[in-house]
Structures are given as structure tokens and as C-alpha cells.
């Protein structure tokens, strides 16, 4: 974890992507969208591979666009050549699909890209105006910690802000976006993921756009006039992705998620409120 007082780059508008899960088509669409919106930099919070087809197609996009990346648990496993993705399911069905996904991704990620994943930092600090931002994968204290909206108290988020001496924490890992404004102008943002839709019956994916507003008079409507957090829906050719997943013989259950927007696997870790929103 980089210290809070080290020299940190400053921005006014940034795009933050969650897990890519090999969905290079959604990543390309998100990068185009972010560029059109005039972002100064794009950040990716890790988990480049998993779930989707052709994992190596993600890396040139990340490099060509100069995306600042941090390491997720999947990246950590791939880089270290571990046996699994460190998701830790107990449901045998979830474990079955997690294994299929991990083996495919590991086998189709070339050694150079594996090595590159191993070089990524586990966190980044930057400034958005006066706001100190801390970017991580699961939580600042643990790469594969799930921070769900319905099981994370504000008291705990306040604790993390104090402990890590920051004003804004950005994370991913759960697959579902959320934002909570805390007392004292602090924010927690789960950026969602680009890799798969978020269990709401719609095939689009999401990223987070953070903008430093000059003042409320610019017409930005937000609870905190200085920092605007928006979630941006990204449509992409999900039928093309589904066709490629089928051609690669990835599970029909994964293909169904891409096409329908409903999660079909790895549901065990969802808390009740989040689980209730889905179909399965």
C-alpha cells in the first residue's frame, strides 16, 4: 500500500473500470466512451482475465490506451501460477465453474502477459483536486475482500478511510457497482465491472466516472458539489462475445449471462439483498 503522503498525480476527470474478465469488446467500448467524455486518465482495478474468451486480447488495449492497472486476485493467481482464482467458493457448482474459467484463462494467457500481471501494484493513490483517492481491488486491507453495498456498514467504511488516510476509496471484486457518500465529504465507490453484466436482466456493463466540479453553478447536480460520481452504462456487441465464448467451448451458463444480464453461477457469495435482485 503506497503511503498517503507520497507524491501523487493530480487529475480532474478520470474513468475507473472494474474487472475486465477477458471482455475485450466491452473494454474497447468503455475506453472509447471514456475518451469521448474527455477523461484525463483511465484506471483498471484488476481481474483482467476470467469468464470470457481470448484473455490475451485485453492486454494490448490496456497498454495502447495507457490504462493504469492494479492487480486483482485473478491476476495474482495467474501470475503466480496458482491452482485456483482464490475466490474460495464452498458450493460445489460454483467451484466447478470457477475451475473451468480459471483453467481456460490460465492456458490462454501467454507467459509475457502473466509476468506483466505479476508486476502490477496492489493499490494506487492519486489526487482529484483536493480529494485523496485510494484505488484497490477488493478492499484496501485485503485483495479478495467483498465489499457489498448491503453488508458493509458506513462505520466500517469510515474506519477504512481513517486507517488508510484517504478521502475516496475505489474498489471492484463484487461485480456490482455502488456508491456511498460518507460524512466529511468522503466517498466509497465500487466501480462495478466491465466483464459481465450486473445481474439486472440487462446486457450492458458499467464503469465509474469521477469528475471534479468547479462549482455547483456549472449545473452539476450532486450531494457533494466538489466531487461527482457517475456510473456509465456501456453497451457493446455482447452477441459477438457470446458467439466467441461458444466457439471457445466456454460454459453455456456463462454465455447465458452475457446474453441475458442474469448471473447463473458464483451466486453463493451474494448477500440477500443483492441476490434478491437477480433471477437465480
Amino acid at each position: 500500500m503506497p503511503p498517503a503522503d507520497s507524491a501523487t498525480p493530480e487529475y480532474r476527470r478520470i474513468a475507473v473500470f472494474g474487472g475486465v474478465y477477458s471482455n475485450y469488446l466491452a473494454l474497447a467500448a468503455a475506453l472509447d466512451d471514456a475518451r469521448r467524455r474527455g477523461v484525463e486518465a483511465c484506471f483498471c482495478l484488476g481481474d483482467m482475465g476470467a469468464f470470457g474468451p481470448h484473455p490475451d486480447r485485453v492486454f494490448p488495449l490496456l497498454r495502447d490506451f495507457g490504462v493504469h492497472c492494479i492487480q486483482g486476485n485473478y491476476d495474482n493467481s495467474i501470475a503466480r501460477g496458482l491452482d485456483d482464482c482464490q475466490c474460495g467458493y464452498t458450493d460445489p457448482r460454483d467451484n466447478h465453474f470457477a475451475r473451468l474459467s480459471y483453467r481456460y484463462t490460465f492456458a490462454h494467457t501467454n507467459p509475457d502477459n502473466r509476468a506483466w500481471l505479476g508486476t502490477l501494484p496492489t493499490a494506487l493513490r492519486l489526487q482529484l483536486g483536493n480529494y485523496r483517492l485510494l484505488l484497490c481491488h477488493g478492499s484496501p486491507r485485503q485483495m479478495n475482500e467483498f465489499l457489498w453495498e448491503s453488508t458493509t456498514s458506513s462505520a466500517f467504511l469510515d474506519y477504512l478511510m481513517r486507517q488508510y488516510d484517504t478521502d475516496v476509496i475505489l474498489a471492484t471484486h463484487t461485480g456490482i457497482k455502488w456508491h456511498r457518500a460518507l460524512e466529511g465529504g468522503r466517498h466509497f465507490v465500487n466501480a462495478g465491472v466491465l466483464g459481465r453484466p450486473e445481474n439486472d436482466g440487462r446486457p450492458n456493463v458499467w464503469y465509474a466516472l469521477l469528475t471534479l466540479a468547479q462549482s455547483a453553478s456549472e449545473g452539476l447536480v450532486t450531494a457533494d458539489p466538489a466531487l461527482q460520481v457517475e456510473f456509465i452504462p456501456v453497451s457493446y456487441d455482447h452477441e459477438q462475445l457470446a458467439a466467441q465464448m461458444r466457439a471457445e467451448q466456454l460454459p453455456d451458463e456463462f454465455v447465458a449471462t452475457v446474453r441475458t444480464g442474469w448471473w447463473t453461477t458464483c451466486l453463493e457469495v451474494l448477500p440477500q439483498k443483492e441476490r434478491r435482485c437477480g433471477r437465480f
Partner: peptide, 10 residues
């Protein structure tokens, strides 16, 4: 703990 919150090794 519940599965949604379980502490996991890394």
C-alpha cells in the same frame, strides 16, 4: 461468518 463476508486467504 456468512459466505458474502468470509475472510479469505490471498
Amino acid at each position: 461468518a456468512n459466505a458474502s463476508s468470509r475472510q479469505r486467504d490471498t
